[in-house]
Write a protein that binds this DNA or RNA. Structure first.
Lengths: 149, 149
DNA sequence: TCTGAAATAGAGACATC
DNA sequence: GATGTCTCTATTTCAGA
Protein backbone atom coordinates (compact mmCIF):
# COMPACT_ATOMS: atom_id res chain seq x y z
CA UNK A 1 0.00 0.00 0.00
CA UNK A 2 1.38 3.32 -1.04
CA UNK A 3 1.06 6.07 1.52
CA UNK A 4 -2.18 7.89 0.96
CA UNK A 5 -2.88 11.18 2.62
CA UNK A 6 -6.30 11.95 4.06
CA UNK A 7 -7.01 14.44 1.28
CA UNK A 8 -6.12 11.88 -1.40
CA UNK A 9 -8.42 9.41 0.31
CA UNK A 10 -11.18 11.98 0.31
CA UNK A 11 -10.67 12.53 -3.41
CA UNK A 12 -10.83 8.80 -4.09
CA UNK A 13 -13.95 8.49 -1.99
CA UNK A 14 -15.74 11.19 -3.94
CA UNK A 15 -14.65 9.88 -7.34
CA UNK A 16 -15.64 6.32 -6.42
CA UNK A 17 -19.21 7.47 -5.96
CA UNK A 18 -19.27 10.09 -8.72
CA UNK A 19 -16.64 9.46 -11.33
CA UNK A 20 -17.71 12.49 -13.36
CA UNK A 21 -17.55 14.93 -10.47
CA UNK A 22 -16.06 18.23 -11.70
CA UNK A 23 -12.79 19.51 -10.31
CA UNK A 24 -14.69 22.53 -9.05
CA UNK A 25 -17.06 20.38 -6.97
CA UNK A 26 -14.26 18.08 -5.92
CA UNK A 27 -12.19 21.04 -4.73
CA UNK A 28 -15.07 22.32 -2.66
CA UNK A 29 -15.75 18.90 -1.15
CA UNK A 30 -12.17 18.26 -0.07
CA UNK A 31 -11.47 21.86 0.89
CA UNK A 32 -8.68 22.72 -1.54
CA UNK A 33 -8.24 24.99 -4.53
CA UNK A 34 -9.23 23.70 -7.94
CA UNK A 35 -5.68 23.56 -9.20
CA UNK A 36 -4.41 21.72 -6.13
CA UNK A 37 -7.11 19.08 -6.56
CA UNK A 38 -6.33 18.92 -10.24
CA UNK A 39 -2.66 18.22 -9.50
CA UNK A 40 -3.53 15.54 -6.93
CA UNK A 41 -5.91 13.75 -9.28
CA UNK A 42 -3.30 13.75 -12.05
CA UNK A 43 -0.74 12.39 -9.61
CA UNK A 44 -3.10 9.65 -8.43
CA UNK A 45 -3.72 8.75 -12.07
CA UNK A 46 0.01 8.67 -12.83
CA UNK A 47 0.78 6.54 -9.79
CA UNK A 48 -1.93 4.15 -10.98
CA UNK A 49 -3.99 4.49 -7.80
CA UNK A 50 -6.74 5.90 -9.99
CA UNK A 51 -6.87 3.41 -12.83
CA UNK A 52 -9.64 5.08 -14.80
CA UNK A 53 -13.33 5.81 -14.81
CA UNK A 54 -16.25 3.65 -15.87
CA UNK A 55 -19.96 4.09 -16.44
CA UNK A 56 -22.16 1.93 -14.22
CA UNK A 57 -24.67 0.18 -16.44
CA UNK A 58 -27.95 -1.49 -15.63
CA UNK A 59 -27.24 -5.01 -16.83
CA UNK A 60 -30.91 -5.83 -17.17
CA UNK A 61 -31.66 -2.90 -19.43
CA UNK A 62 -28.50 -3.48 -21.39
CA UNK A 63 -29.66 -6.94 -22.35
CA UNK A 64 -27.47 -9.03 -20.01
CA UNK A 65 -29.85 -9.85 -17.16
CA UNK A 66 -28.38 -13.26 -16.33
CA UNK A 67 -25.26 -13.33 -14.14
CA UNK A 68 -23.39 -16.45 -13.06
CA UNK A 69 -20.24 -17.58 -11.33
CA UNK A 70 -18.35 -20.31 -13.15
CA UNK A 71 -15.61 -22.21 -11.32
CA UNK A 72 -12.98 -23.91 -13.44
CA UNK A 73 -10.91 -27.02 -12.88
CA UNK A 74 -8.23 -27.82 -15.48
CA UNK A 75 -8.63 -31.27 -16.97
CA UNK A 76 -4.94 -31.62 -17.77
CA UNK A 77 -3.03 -30.46 -14.67
CA UNK A 78 0.24 -30.32 -16.58
CA UNK A 79 -1.12 -27.99 -19.29
CA UNK A 80 0.40 -24.49 -19.42
CA UNK A 81 -1.62 -22.03 -17.34
CA UNK A 82 -2.83 -19.57 -19.95
CA UNK A 83 -6.51 -19.88 -19.03
CA UNK A 84 -7.17 -16.20 -18.31
CA UNK A 85 -5.76 -15.20 -21.67
CA UNK A 86 -7.81 -17.83 -23.51
CA UNK A 87 -10.98 -16.90 -21.69
CA UNK A 88 -10.48 -13.21 -22.37
CA UNK A 89 -11.58 -13.94 -25.92
CA UNK A 90 -15.12 -14.51 -24.62
CA UNK A 91 -16.78 -11.13 -24.09
CA UNK A 92 -19.32 -12.60 -21.68
CA UNK A 93 -16.50 -13.20 -19.18
CA UNK A 94 -16.44 -9.99 -17.20
CA UNK A 95 -14.01 -10.95 -14.43
CA UNK A 96 -11.48 -13.72 -13.92
CA UNK A 97 -10.06 -14.59 -10.49
CA UNK A 98 -7.33 -17.10 -9.74
CA UNK A 99 -8.31 -18.68 -6.44
CA UNK A 100 -7.08 -20.96 -3.68
CA UNK A 101 -9.14 -24.07 -3.05
CA UNK A 102 -10.50 -27.01 -4.98
CA UNK A 103 -10.92 -25.05 -8.16
CA UNK A 104 -8.41 -22.91 -10.03
CA UNK A 105 -10.43 -19.98 -11.35
CA UNK A 106 -13.69 -18.26 -10.70
CA UNK A 107 -15.29 -16.35 -13.55
CA UNK A 108 -18.08 -13.84 -13.33
CA UNK A 109 -20.09 -13.94 -16.55
CA UNK A 110 -23.09 -12.05 -17.91
CA UNK A 111 -25.42 -13.31 -20.62
CA UNK A 112 -28.84 -12.61 -22.08
CA UNK A 113 -30.59 -15.86 -21.17
CA UNK A 114 -30.20 -19.46 -20.07
CA UNK A 115 -29.47 -20.81 -23.52
CA UNK A 116 -26.71 -18.21 -23.91
CA UNK A 117 -25.21 -19.49 -20.65
CA UNK A 118 -25.36 -23.04 -21.97
CA UNK A 119 -23.62 -21.92 -25.12
CA UNK A 120 -21.00 -19.98 -23.16
CA UNK A 121 -20.20 -23.03 -21.02
CA UNK A 122 -19.64 -25.05 -24.16
CA UNK A 123 -17.28 -22.42 -25.53
CA UNK A 124 -15.39 -22.18 -22.21
CA UNK A 125 -14.77 -25.93 -22.17
CA UNK A 126 -13.81 -25.77 -25.82
CA UNK A 127 -11.32 -22.95 -25.48
CA UNK A 128 -9.76 -23.87 -22.13
CA UNK A 129 -10.03 -27.65 -21.59
CA UNK A 130 -11.56 -27.34 -18.16
CA UNK A 131 -14.46 -28.80 -16.27
CA UNK A 132 -16.93 -26.21 -15.00
CA UNK A 133 -19.25 -25.68 -12.06
CA UNK A 134 -21.87 -22.99 -12.44
CA UNK A 135 -23.64 -20.99 -9.78
CA UNK A 136 -26.49 -18.89 -11.15
CA UNK A 137 -27.14 -15.49 -9.58
CA UNK A 138 -30.81 -15.06 -8.68
CA UNK A 139 -30.60 -11.42 -7.65
CA UNK A 140 -27.99 -8.84 -6.78
CA UNK A 141 -28.85 -6.91 -3.62
CA UNK A 142 -25.79 -4.73 -4.24
CA UNK A 143 -22.62 -4.77 -6.26
CA UNK A 144 -19.37 -2.78 -6.50
CA UNK A 145 -20.00 -0.65 -3.48
CA UNK A 146 -17.31 2.02 -3.16
CA UNK A 147 -14.62 0.77 -0.76
CA UNK A 148 -14.01 2.48 2.56
CA UNK A 149 -10.80 4.05 1.29
CA UNK B 1 -34.18 -5.32 -22.03
CA UNK B 2 -35.26 -1.92 -23.20
CA UNK B 3 -34.76 -1.28 -26.88
CA UNK B 4 -31.32 0.13 -27.40
CA UNK B 5 -30.33 1.70 -30.66
CA UNK B 6 -26.89 1.12 -32.13
CA UNK B 7 -25.86 4.69 -31.33
CA UNK B 8 -26.96 4.32 -27.71
CA UNK B 9 -24.96 1.12 -27.53
CA UNK B 10 -21.94 2.91 -28.92
CA UNK B 11 -22.32 5.62 -26.28
CA UNK B 12 -22.51 3.02 -23.52
CA UNK B 13 -19.48 1.25 -24.90
CA UNK B 14 -17.39 4.41 -24.87
CA UNK B 15 -18.51 5.48 -21.41
CA UNK B 16 -17.88 2.00 -20.01
CA UNK B 17 -14.24 2.34 -20.93
CA UNK B 18 -13.86 6.05 -20.24
CA UNK B 19 -16.47 7.33 -17.85
CA UNK B 20 -15.07 10.86 -17.96
CA UNK B 21 -15.09 11.14 -21.74
CA UNK B 22 -16.25 14.62 -22.76
CA UNK B 23 -19.39 15.09 -24.81
CA UNK B 24 -17.23 16.56 -27.54
CA UNK B 25 -15.11 13.40 -27.80
CA UNK B 26 -18.15 11.20 -27.40
CA UNK B 27 -19.95 13.02 -30.21
CA UNK B 28 -16.99 12.55 -32.50
CA UNK B 29 -16.66 8.85 -31.65
CA UNK B 30 -20.31 8.00 -32.27
CA UNK B 31 -20.68 10.35 -35.24
CA UNK B 32 -23.31 12.74 -33.93
CA UNK B 33 -23.45 16.39 -32.92
CA UNK B 34 -22.52 17.33 -29.37
CA UNK B 35 -26.04 18.31 -28.41
CA UNK B 36 -27.58 15.15 -29.84
CA UNK B 37 -25.16 13.05 -27.80
CA UNK B 38 -25.88 15.21 -24.80
CA UNK B 39 -29.59 14.52 -25.09
CA UNK B 40 -29.05 10.79 -25.53
CA UNK B 41 -26.80 10.51 -22.49
CA UNK B 42 -29.32 12.40 -20.36
CA UNK B 43 -32.07 10.11 -21.60
CA UNK B 44 -30.00 7.00 -20.83
CA UNK B 45 -29.39 8.38 -17.34
CA UNK B 46 -33.07 9.12 -16.82
CA UNK B 47 -34.11 5.68 -18.02
CA UNK B 48 -31.62 4.21 -15.56
CA UNK B 49 -29.63 2.41 -18.24
CA UNK B 50 -26.69 4.58 -17.21
CA UNK B 51 -26.74 4.23 -13.45
CA UNK B 52 -23.76 6.48 -12.74
CA UNK B 53 -20.01 6.73 -13.02
CA UNK B 54 -17.27 5.37 -10.79
CA UNK B 55 -13.52 5.69 -10.48
CA UNK B 56 -11.61 2.45 -10.95
CA UNK B 57 -9.19 2.11 -8.05
CA UNK B 58 -6.09 -0.03 -7.65
CA UNK B 59 -7.10 -2.10 -4.64
CA UNK B 60 -3.51 -2.90 -3.79
CA UNK B 61 -2.42 0.72 -3.65
CA UNK B 62 -5.56 1.69 -1.82
CA UNK B 63 -4.69 -0.66 1.00
CA UNK B 64 -7.11 -3.51 0.26
CA UNK B 65 -4.91 -6.06 -1.51
CA UNK B 66 -6.71 -9.16 -0.24
CA UNK B 67 -9.89 -10.21 -2.06
CA UNK B 68 -12.07 -13.19 -1.18
CA UNK B 69 -15.38 -14.82 -2.02
CA UNK B 70 -17.45 -15.80 0.99
CA UNK B 71 -20.40 -18.15 0.53
CA UNK B 72 -23.11 -18.04 3.15
CA UNK B 73 -25.49 -20.69 4.45
CA UNK B 74 -28.14 -19.59 6.94
CA UNK B 75 -28.03 -21.53 10.19
CA UNK B 76 -31.70 -21.02 10.91
CA UNK B 77 -33.59 -21.70 7.66
CA UNK B 78 -36.76 -20.17 9.05
CA UNK B 79 -35.12 -16.85 9.92
CA UNK B 80 -36.31 -13.80 7.94
CA UNK B 81 -34.15 -13.21 4.89
CA UNK B 82 -32.63 -9.81 5.62
CA UNK B 83 -29.02 -10.95 5.16
CA UNK B 84 -28.04 -8.44 2.45
CA UNK B 85 -29.27 -5.56 4.57
CA UNK B 86 -27.42 -6.79 7.65
CA UNK B 87 -24.22 -7.39 5.72
CA UNK B 88 -24.36 -3.96 4.11
CA UNK B 89 -23.23 -2.58 7.45
CA UNK B 90 -19.81 -4.13 6.83
CA UNK B 91 -17.85 -1.85 4.48
CA UNK B 92 -15.52 -4.69 3.45
CA UNK B 93 -18.46 -6.36 1.69
CA UNK B 94 -18.29 -4.93 -1.77
CA UNK B 95 -20.88 -7.10 -3.56
CA UNK B 96 -23.66 -9.39 -2.44
CA UNK B 97 -25.26 -11.97 -4.75
CA UNK B 98 -28.23 -14.18 -3.98
CA UNK B 99 -27.49 -17.48 -5.71
CA UNK B 100 -29.00 -20.82 -6.65
CA UNK B 101 -27.27 -23.89 -5.29
CA UNK B 102 -26.12 -25.27 -1.97
CA UNK B 103 -25.43 -21.85 -0.52
CA UNK B 104 -27.69 -18.81 -0.32
CA UNK B 105 -25.37 -15.86 -0.90
CA UNK B 106 -21.97 -15.14 -2.34
CA UNK B 107 -20.12 -12.08 -1.07
CA UNK B 108 -17.12 -10.43 -2.65
CA UNK B 109 -15.02 -8.81 0.08
CA UNK B 110 -11.82 -6.78 0.18
CA UNK B 111 -9.55 -6.43 3.19
CA UNK B 112 -6.02 -5.32 4.07
CA UNK B 113 -4.61 -8.64 5.27
CA UNK B 114 -5.37 -12.17 6.47
CA UNK B 115 -6.14 -11.17 10.04
CA UNK B 116 -8.61 -8.60 8.74
CA UNK B 117 -10.32 -11.40 6.81
CA UNK B 118 -10.46 -13.51 9.94
CA UNK B 119 -12.01 -10.60 11.80
CA UNK B 120 -14.49 -9.95 9.01
CA UNK B 121 -15.63 -13.58 9.01
CA UNK B 122 -16.29 -13.33 12.73
CA UNK B 123 -18.37 -10.20 12.24
CA UNK B 124 -20.30 -11.75 9.34
CA UNK B 125 -21.29 -14.75 11.48
CA UNK B 126 -22.13 -12.41 14.31
CA UNK B 127 -24.33 -10.09 12.32
CA UNK B 128 -26.07 -12.65 10.11
CA UNK B 129 -26.17 -16.04 11.88
CA UNK B 130 -24.72 -17.93 8.94
CA UNK B 131 -22.02 -20.47 8.34
CA UNK B 132 -19.36 -19.34 5.88
CA UNK B 133 -17.09 -20.84 3.26
CA UNK B 134 -14.22 -18.68 2.08
CA UNK B 135 -12.34 -18.78 -1.20
CA UNK B 136 -9.27 -16.55 -1.22
CA UNK B 137 -8.36 -14.78 -4.45
CA UNK B 138 -4.69 -15.29 -5.33
CA UNK B 139 -4.60 -12.94 -8.28
CA UNK B 140 -7.00 -11.13 -10.57
CA UNK B 141 -6.06 -11.50 -14.24
CA UNK B 142 -8.90 -9.10 -15.09
CA UNK B 143 -11.99 -7.65 -13.51
CA UNK B 144 -15.03 -5.61 -14.56
CA UNK B 145 -14.30 -5.73 -18.25
CA UNK B 146 -16.73 -3.53 -20.15
CA UNK B 147 -19.59 -5.69 -21.44
CA UNK B 148 -20.14 -6.21 -25.15
CA UNK B 149 -23.16 -3.90 -25.09
C1' DT C 1 2.32 21.67 -2.68
C1' DC C 2 -0.40 25.25 -2.63
C1' DT C 3 -2.66 29.53 -4.76
C1' DG C 4 -4.77 32.58 -8.09
C1' DA C 5 -5.15 34.34 -12.74
C1' DA C 6 -5.41 33.80 -17.74
C1' DA C 7 -6.44 31.13 -21.89
C1' DT C 8 -8.74 27.30 -23.89
C1' DA C 9 -12.30 24.00 -24.04
C1' DG C 10 -16.58 21.95 -22.68
C1' DA C 11 -21.39 21.95 -20.72
C1' DG C 12 -25.93 23.07 -21.02
C1' DA C 13 -29.99 25.73 -22.96
C1' DC C 14 -32.49 27.29 -26.86
C1' DA C 15 -34.53 28.12 -31.17
C1' DT C 16 -34.84 25.98 -35.70
C1' DC C 17 -35.21 22.33 -39.04
C1' DG D 1 -34.71 13.54 -32.90
C1' DA D 2 -30.90 16.32 -34.85
C1' DT D 3 -28.29 20.70 -35.56
C1' DG D 4 -25.75 25.07 -34.71
C1' DT D 5 -25.22 28.97 -31.86
C1' DC D 6 -24.83 31.29 -27.61
C1' DT D 7 -23.72 31.93 -22.75
C1' DC D 8 -21.69 30.33 -18.85
C1' DT D 9 -18.80 27.31 -16.39
C1' DA D 10 -15.06 24.08 -16.03
C1' DT D 11 -10.51 22.53 -17.39
C1' DT D 12 -5.81 23.22 -17.87
C1' DT D 13 -1.50 25.69 -17.71
C1' DC D 14 1.62 28.74 -15.59
C1' DA D 15 4.08 32.01 -12.60
C1' DG D 16 4.83 32.86 -7.91
C1' DA D 17 4.68 31.95 -2.85
Amino acid sequence: MTNLEPIDRAILRVLSEDGRCSFTDLAEKVGLSVSAVHQRVRRLEQRGVLRGYAARLDHEQVGLPLTAFISLTPIDPSAPDDYPQRLAALPEVQSCYSVAGDESYILLVRVAKATALEDLLRRIREVANVSTRTTVVLSTPYEDRPPAV
